[in-house]
Simulated scan of single mutants.
Amino acid sequence: TRNQTIPVLCHSYLGNPLADGGLNFLALGDWGGLPLPPYTSPLERNTACSMGAIAKKNSVDWILSLGDNFYYDGVTNDTDPRFQETFESIFTSRSLFVPWFIIAGNHDHHGNVTAQISYSKRSPRWNFPDYYYSRFFEVPDERGESRASLHLITLDTVMLCGLPKGGGDAIVGVRGEYVSKLTCCQSACCSLSATYLLVAGHYPVWSVAEHGPTKCLLSHLRPLLIRYQVTAYLSGHDHCLQYLQEPGLPVGYVISGAGTFMNPSLEHIADVPPGSLRFHFADIEGLGGFVHGTATVQNLTFFYIDGRGKRIFSVTLPPRRPNLN
């Protein structure tokens, strides 16, 4: 295929480093290589190289993995060679030796997700403590003083909504045994006064691409995101880069699923609210892609980066002003 003949081109990052201060992170989904030698793809290798360049330029603090970490059937145990072949030997830049916060995707659930959780004990940068967890970060100003905060809440959307059966439209009902996890998410959102609140899962809420919107999340998660003024919901699953935001509502929907493959499908473009799609990128010539987030006291900006290291879109979101009464 065309994907197999793409050369690996390690480009220097084309943008200038950002100003001092703030919190920098990367978000990458669907980067899980291939199940046969060389256990990776040219898009993954180019994306990893560009991630290393931007991480070095901007002193990235952590990386968020949005699921589908190992195609096509996850791993078998915590000594599975795929950890080395698809992760450790690909993301080799020293700038990428920061905490990686891991979420499971549907392909990970085809295998042994508890083995990925257990691998946290073997790799100092692989942080996957549970199917659901959260992390709190201080956001420093240019003098290094903490003036703002960011809270990350991760969800296992496969456990919530099930495995897809031919696309996102088949994922319609939340699984009853995991309703309590959404209740925990609601409690965390409600009680939190963080400057920026991010929620992350593998399945998208809104998407114009092959899988489309996830009805289960539209019904059960979207109302919470709006009610508690979540800054952004980050996901993967569709193999492209997207940004969506419903007109008049505060939540940004960040899709970063271009880590291994690109799929140009727009088959669900009529299934998202009019005016909500702000950006879509699935050009294979871009050699993959990821998202760079930078939070400052003033705002949170997402930069979309292709596998050549080029900024192709950005969006800036304001601090939250949650009503905690």
Results as ranks from 00 to 15, higher is better:
Pro213Ile: 15
Arg143Asp: 08
Val199Lys: 10
Ala53Arg: 13
Val199Arg: 03
Gly33Ala: 10
His202Glu: 03
Ala232Trp: 07
His107Gly: 03
Ala148Glu: 10
Gln4Met: 07
Leu197Ile: 04
Asp108Leu: 11
Arg135Thr: 12
Arg222Gly: 00
Tyr71His: 07
Leu217Asp: 02
Val139Ile: 15
Ala115Pro: 05
Leu224Arg: 11
Arg94Phe: 07
Lys56Gly: 10
Leu317Ala: 04
Leu300Phe: 13
Tyr13Gly: 02
Leu152Gln: 03
His110Cys: 01
Thr296Asn: 01
Pro318Ser: 14
Pro319Leu: 08
Gly15Asn: 14
Asn16Ser: 13
Ala27Phe: 11
Leu26Asp: 03
Ile6Trp: 08
Tyr243Phe: 15
Asn58Phe: 06
Pro318Gln: 00
Ser123Met: 05
Phe83Trp: 07
Leu150Thr: 08
Arg135Trp: 14
Gly162Pro: 12
Arg143Val: 00
Tyr13His: 09
Asp130Cys: 00
Ser191Tyr: 04
Leu217Thr: 02
Tyr304Asp: 00
Val315Thr: 14
Ser180Asn: 09
Gly33Gln: 08
Met51Gly: 03
Asp169Ile: 13
Ser256Ala: 15
Ser95Ile: 07
Ser123Ala: 07
Thr195Val: 06
Leu324Arg: 14
Ser256Pro: 06
Asp271Phe: 00
Ser12Asp: 11
Ser219Arg: 14
Pro274Glu: 09
Ile171Trp: 06
Leu287Thr: 04
Tyr228Cys: 13
Glu285Ile: 04
Val172Gln: 15
Ser146Gly: 15
Gly167Ser: 01
Ile153Thr: 11
His11Asn: 10
